[in-house]
């Protein structure tokens, strides 16, 4: 293996890792925003909203992520909607994960003790205010750990944009390995790269949020 190819490949790998991080971040924002919105719609007492929520969740969880990416990438252009690979990557992965996220939101909201709803009703809270002030703060704290796992799934999911022509970490490692013939080295580096992103960035971030939220909770309790 010559020096030049190696140096070139390492640079490509670093760029790939950067792309993976950008897509992961973008898709996470999409997943969180859509997941929260659809989760709230899903627990709405109005049935058209509720059923829209059910359909959304079942659609995005039931069809495969790669099918969804292909759909965005190959099918939408037929309707004259040619999206850039970046848009496909961020929204494709993000919306897929938002289906799972919405389900987490639903479970967490419905998991808040009945007594909390009853107390809010007894205090004559309007429904939206009850959601915002009483139910959601408790639900969010309860669902944070699951979101941590979900975001790691999202990170892994970004490897599938290998199939739609963006050179993220997996693609970069494959290209580098093909170019140099050293599959062991580059795949091992990429595997550890993902492991590091998951365990050194996502997990601590979610843990930090958990701590922060429970601190706020304690403060509110003491206040």
């Amino acid at each position: 293996m010559n020096e030049f190819a190696l140096g070139f490949s390492v640079a490509a790998l670093v760029r790939g890792a950067g792309v993976t991080m950008v897509v992961t971040f973008g898709a996470s924002v999409v997943a969180i925003v859509f997941g929260l919105a659809v989760g709230l719609i899903r627990v709405s007492p109005r049935w058209p909203l509720k059923w829209f929520g059910v359909a959304y969740i079942e659609f995005f969880r039931g069809t495969s992520l790669l099918v969804q990416l292909y759909w965005w990438f190959f099918v939408l252009p037929i309707f004259g909607l040619a999206l850039s690979p970046w848009t496909v990557a961020i929204f494709g992965v993000g919306m897929n994960v938002s289906g799972y996220g919405a389900e987490l939101v639903r479970a967490a909201i419905q998991g808040v003790e009945r007594g909390q709803y009853e107390a809010s009703t007894a205090l004559n809270f309007p429904r939206l205010k009850m959601m915002r002030r009483i139910i959601l703060p408790q639900a969010i704290r309860a669902m944070l750990p699951s979101w941590g796992n979900l975001l790691i799934e999202l990170l892994k999911g970004t490897s599938l944009i290998f199939f739609i022509t963006i050179t993220e970490l997996t693609t970069a490692s494959k290209l580098a390995a093909d170019a140099t013939g050293n599959y062991l080295l580059f795949f091992a580096i990429a595997l550890f790269g993902y492991y590091l992103l998951a365990r050194a960035i996502i997990t601590p971030l979610v843990r930090w949020l958990e701590r922060r939220m429970s601190r706020a909770y304690v403060r509110e309790m003491l206040a």
Binding site: I152, K156, G181, Y183, L184, F187, A190, L191, Y195, R199
Partner: peptide
């Protein structure tokens, strides 16, 4: 287990399929 769970399936498939022939 933790490692397997935090790395992409696609990359693991590549690893097993391509690294073997190298040796």
């Amino acid at each position: 287990v933790e490692f397997i769970r935090s790395t992409p399936l696609l990359l693991q498939v590549f690893f097993v399929y391509f690294v073997g022939p190298q040796f």
